[in-house]
Design a protein around this nucleic acid. Structure first.
Length: 466
DNA sequence: CCTGGAGTTGTCCTA
DNA sequence: TTAGGACAACTCCAG
């Protein structure tokens, strides 16, 4: 029989490893929860909730034939090879540094016992080692990476035709139940997240088609407005591989030179770029890409960090974003930039604090995108934002949530605050706030934890000191 | 090796 | 009210 080892490719469609295994004979689909090799990058809480449901739905799509294990994949897979007649093991590649070394070792061990080990590309449009500059070094700037590097490389493969029916191994395999993986939290905080999403492969396709029909044709502009439905919201599905970038690319890249299409494709390109950075600079998740930032005077302020995490900074657009994250496991991209800039620049707290919080709270937490993006915001990454670009949470709120719909939804205590003061409620006269909104600043909603002007100047000083 | 052009997503001040 | 320039230089990339 042939083992198909599912990892970050929890789908039936366009799955090269699954197809190859199915062509070879009877298949044994397995999932191994690996908390051993990931060490400090163990999957976060929100991701585990998603994973639980994604696995449940994949198991259903495989007619209940998915087998679950927990532990070190090396031992699990070798154990299977010992006990059963395993001819081959198939998987789609992962790109986290720890996955790469783990998989390499497993490949060697399998070859030593004459079991064929086969890895495939089910995750990236371009392999990181295939897109290099003329001098064979990796790109560090997005535009040339994408426009030259990717566009001149061999085009991404087309999605593969689906296999009709699978022939599952009839062996009685000893494994554990999905509940034994303990992916759901003991304290039930996850229900509000679960209610926001359909965490299945079908959910991915529905989301994709919905976006193709509605969002994509106003993407360039509309993606900036968190209350509009113009972003794809595909990130968690892409992370868990419930849809492949190839499915997306083949559908859209032939649609001509519409500005909206180009912008959407370049976002897919940013995902590839992040993976390329992580592959070529494996310390990306923990070390400043620009080493001069090792001297940066980050502040230590646990209270401010806590206020940011819990959406209590006193800046409505920031708090709305942080509460969206907490309630839904997701944050709109525009608001991610605003909230991240606030942490790193206005609060002067180390980007790794933000990275860790997002890692734990996001259902789309992805090592490559998360670390590359935090470094980008902090200014220490590849192609980073210039240091003098400090988002103003008041202006950004007024500009990108002009009706206040998004902000009032996630910060309901501000429902009655008039538009004029929504993003700076502390400036409203006390009696007017009390009368219209029934709130007192400092009591029902926090006073701003930093002054925006002062903290901006403080950030500019700190960044200049490099 | 040298050189010139360019670089996701802003803000603030001034005329 | 609005448009335009300054912000500070640096690194990357390609010719």
């Amino acid at each position: 029989m042939h083992v198909i080892w599912f990892r970050q490719d929890l789908r039936i469609t366009d799955n090269p490893a699954l197809l190859a295994a199915a062509h070879s004979g009877d298949i044994l689909p397995i999932y191994i929860l690996d908390d051993v090799n990931a060490s400090s990058y163990r999957m976060g809480g929100a991701s585990r909730v998603w994973l639980h449901h994604a696995l449940q739905s994949l198991d259903k799509d495989l007619s209940g034939n998915l087998r679950f294990f927990s532990g070190d994949p090396k031992e699990v897979i070798l154990g299977l090879c010992e006990k059963y007649n395993v001819n081959g093991v198939h998987w789609n590649r992962c790109y986290e540094p720890w996955s790469i070394s783990r998989d390499k070792e497993i490949k060697n061990l399998l070859r030593r016992i004459s079991v064929s080990a086969n890895s495939y590309n089910g995750r990236l449009l371009w392999e990181p080692w295939d897109v290099l500059k003329a001098d064979k070094t990796p790109y560090k700037v997005f535009t040339p990476y994408f426009k030259k590097g990717c566009m001149n490389a061999a085009p991404p493969r087309k999605p593969i035709k689906q296999h009709g029916t699978f022939s599952f191994s009839k062996e009685d395999i000893s494994s554990v139940s999905i509940d034994a993986l303990k992916l759901l939290p003991d304290i039930a905080w996850h229900h509000s997240i679960v209610s926001c999403w359909d965490m299945s492969e079908q959910g991915a396709l529905n989301t994709w088609y919905e976006f193709l029909e509605n969002g994509i044709y106003d993407y360039k502009e509309g993606r900036n407005f968190p209350s509009k439905k113009c972003v794809s919201r595909l990130s968690p599905y892409l992370h868990f591989g419930q849809i492949s970038p190839h499915q997306i690319w083949s559908e859209v890249s032939c649609r001509g030179d519409d500005d909206n299409i180009i912008h959407f494709l370049s976002e897919i390109g940013w995902r590839e770029f992040s993976y390329s950075l992580l592959y070529h600079f494996p310390s990306l998740p923990s070390e400043n890409l620009q080493t001069k930032f090792d001297r940066f005077p980050w502040r230590n302020d646990p209270k401010a960090l806590k206020a940011w995490q819990s959406g209590q900074t006193g800046y409505p657009i920031v708090d709305a974003g942080m509460r969206e994250l907490w309630q839904t496991g997701y944050m709109h991209n525009r608001v991610r930039m605003i909230a991240a800039s606030f942490l790193v620049k206005n609060l002067l707290l180390d980007w790794r604090h933000g990275e860790a919080w997002f890692w734990d709270c996001l259902v789309d937490a992805d090592l490559a995108s998360n670390s590359a993006s935090w470094q980008w915001v902090a200014g220490c990454g590849a192609d980073a934002a210039p240091y003098f670009r400090v988002f103003n949470p008041i202006t950004q709120g007024e500009k990108f949530d002009p009706t206040g719909e998004y902000t009032r939804h996630y910060v309901p205590e501000l429902k009655g605050v008039p538009d004029k003061y929504l993003f700076k409620p502390w400036e409203a006269p006390d009696d007017e706030l009390k009368k219209n909104a029934g709130i007192v600043i400092g009591q029902d909603y926090p006073r701003p934890i930093v002054d925006i002007k002062q903290s901006r100047l403080r950030a500019l000083e700190a960044f200049k000191s490099l």
